[in-house]
């Protein structure tokens, strides 16, 4: 309790910004205006918003194939994101990367990449760099439950613990790794427990409760800043859309194997609606203020989509630019 109105508004704004941005992609994807594979973040907003609230642009964030939310939560410009998704020269990766390669080093967004677990060790390297230089920068590695299948995660837990690195492992457990439900991937569904044998402080968080995520994230990040890292957080959450694209079914592949009742029960736990209700019921922020935020974000989305669509494509003659510096 005792959260400032500013903080509450920030958390709300970040979540709405992510949701509106993600949902604005649905039509262009279905119309074929967006070609690159988009793994939408809708439903998981509380994780990115809650964690990134305690980070600043000096910190280091590394993401995955599903990182639109991380990019926005770190303060990445929506224009840069959307232009990248439309693979334009004005995008954050200049149209070379698409939806799965988001970067803005000035904002602490050090890159996202779709090789499962591929960026965990990179985040560890950033934490190591921070340590070597005697800085207080914290690195955050976002990854999914699927990444818990890869050995590199365990190697990182060990090394980060050994060197007390300022690294927060944030596992977004949405219970699925593409077509595989978590119980077909692991015997123990509580992923945070993998950190225990490495003596890494870890906990499980309701990933659809932005304040819970915020609290856990803040504590973990402060811990790391004090040199007491690493920390492992498992945020249980759910994606509202398909693994890739708006809906695995409407794209004609009929591969969303998630039971309908399960999807519906999670829709009821929508992190934004939930937070909104909490804010209003406790008279923390007014309806007017929330509406104002939504309006402001709608405008931002509209403007950013326009910007993206009207931006030039990279030029073919520049194909091999950026292979080497």
């Amino acid at each position: 309790m005792g959260y400032s109105r500013e903080l509450l508004a920030n958390l709300y704004r970040t979540m709405v910004r992510i949701r509106f941005c993600e949902e604005s992609l649905v039509k262009p994807i279905l119309k074929g205006e967006i070609i690159c594979p988009c793994h939408l973040y809708s439903g998981q907003e509380a994780v990115a918003a809650g964690i990134c609230e305690s980070l600043n642009e000096k910190d280091y964030v590394f993401g995955t194939h599903r990182s639109h939310g991380h990019f926005l939560a770190m303060g990445g410009a929506m224009r840069d994101l959307l232009a990248e998704i439309f693979t334009r020269e004005t995008g954050c990766s200049r149209g070379r990367g698409g939806s799965m390669h988001l970067i803005d080093p000035g904002k602490g967004i050090m890159g996202a990449a779709p090789i499962v677990a591929g960026t965990i060790s990179l985040a560890m390297g950033a934490a190591l760099a921070s340590n070597l230089r005697g800085e207080k920068r914290v690195a955050v590695s976002f990854f999914g439950d699927g990444a818990a299948g890869e050995g590199v995660l365990y190697e990182c837990l060990n090394f980060a613990a050994l060197k007390k690195l300022p690294l927060v492992f944030v596992c977004e457990n949405n219970f699925y790794s593409t077509h595989m439900p978590i119980q077909e991937c692991r015997v123990n569904g509580d992923i945070y427990k993998i950190a225990e044998p490495f003596s890494v402080k870890s906990s499980k968080v309701d990933g659809n409760d932005v304040l819970k995520v915020y609290e856990a994230g803040k504590e973990a990040i402060e811990f790391c800043r004090k040199g007491e890292g690493p920390v492992f957080l498992e945020c249980k959450t759910y994606r509202f859309r398909g693994h890739v694209g708006p809906d695995d079914n409407i794209q004609g592949t009929h591969t969303d194997i998630r039971p309908r009742e399960e999807v519906e029960s999670w829709l009821k736990k929508d992190p934004i609606t939930r937070f909104e209700k909490y804010l209003l019921e406790n008279n923390l922020l007014s309806e007017k203020l929330l509406d104002g935020i939504k309006k402001e974000i709608s405008d931002e989305v509209e403007e950013s989509i326009e910007f993206a669509k009207n931006s030039p494509y990279p030029e073919a003659k520049e194909l091999t630019r950026y292979v080497y510096k």
Binding site: T87, R96, G98, Y313, A316, V323
Partner: peptide
């Protein structure tokens, strides 16, 4: 292929 990673943008893919 040129000695270059695969680009995203379809304009570049076409050239690639």
């Amino acid at each position: 292929l040129p000695d270059c990673p695969a680009p995203a943008s379809s304009v570049l893919e076409k050239a690639y």
